[in-house]
């Protein structure tokens, strides 16, 4: 489904990714682990179009979505969504949660009117296990676990083919982490989507993933694939 070939990225003189190739099949949970600062998030940002690779290319269903020479294809790349480490990172602190949803729906024309948009938000809230009351709050009025569920709901709005969890549960307590992971699995795998789990927690990655990639100590490449 998603294929990265010979990806490379440097920041100034610091080479972070070099000749990174990988594949994520439909319905799979794929894990990437390695120490902090080794380039895991750089890879995620390339897949989402936040960064452009210096070398290599990324394909989704055989179609090129980005390369060193071509611009990121947003209309296709929107099917790759990412949940960040900081639960509040994707929420605007001055905006009620529901207004953040409306803004996304309006911008991407995901619903023809406000009533249908509200209905869509309601379905998503149910899917992530939150009550509709919570969307009338400001971000600082909800807990970290609730904020992370909202971030997931915002990603699910686009019915993504791939959901990237970039250390998305490392700030959460164990029970919230277990609940969030379970909901992501339900929401993504039931509709044939895939999950890319990026973490420094080897145990978590080994427990959850069908396939694991490891960054080597040269910070340069994904070198190993361990069958569970």
């Amino acid at each position: 489904m998603i294929r990265g070939e010979h990806l490379g990225k440097a920041f100034g003189s610091c080479q972070v990714l070099e000749d990174v190739s990988f594949q994520i099949a439909q319905g799979q949970i794929v894990g990437v682990y390695g120490a902090s600062g080794i380039g895991k998030s750089t890879l995620a940002k390339i897949l989402c179009g936040v960064l452009r690779p210096d070398t290599g290319q990324v394909y989704l269903d055989g179609e090129l979505i980005c390369s060193a020479r071509t611009k990121y294809r947003r209309e296709k790349g929107i099917q790759i969504q990412m949940v960040y480490q900081q639960p509040y990172a994707s929420l605007d602190h001055s905006q009620k949660i529901i207004d953040g949803f409306y803004e996304l729906i309006r911008y991407h024309r995901l619903a023809p009117n406000k009533a249908l948009a509200r209905e869509r938000i309601g379905t998503l809230m149910e899917e992530v296990g939150l009550s509709m009351e919570i969307v009338n709050h400001l971000p600082h009025q909800i807990s970290g676990g609730e904020a992370q569920r909202i971030a997931i709901a915002k990603c699910l709005l686009f019915a993504p083919r791939l959901l990237i969890l970039d250390e998305a549960t490392s700030m959460l307590d164990v029970s919230t982490q277990a609940n969030v992971i379970a909901l992501v699995k339900r929401a993504m795998l039931s509709r044939g989507g895939s999950i890319l789990l990026i973490s420094h927690d080897k145990e978590l990655v080994e427990h959850l993933c069908d396939q694991i990639y490891v960054f080597d100590d040269k910070k340069l490449r994904i070198k190993e694939r361990i069958e569970p």
Partner: peptide
């Protein structure tokens, strides 16, 4: 018990409502 059960080594058991 629920907190301990939610650990990775214990299978990340959920605590639903």
């Amino acid at each position: 018990k629920a907190l301990i059960g939610a650990l990775v080594e214990n299978g990340m058991q959920e605590t639903p409502v």
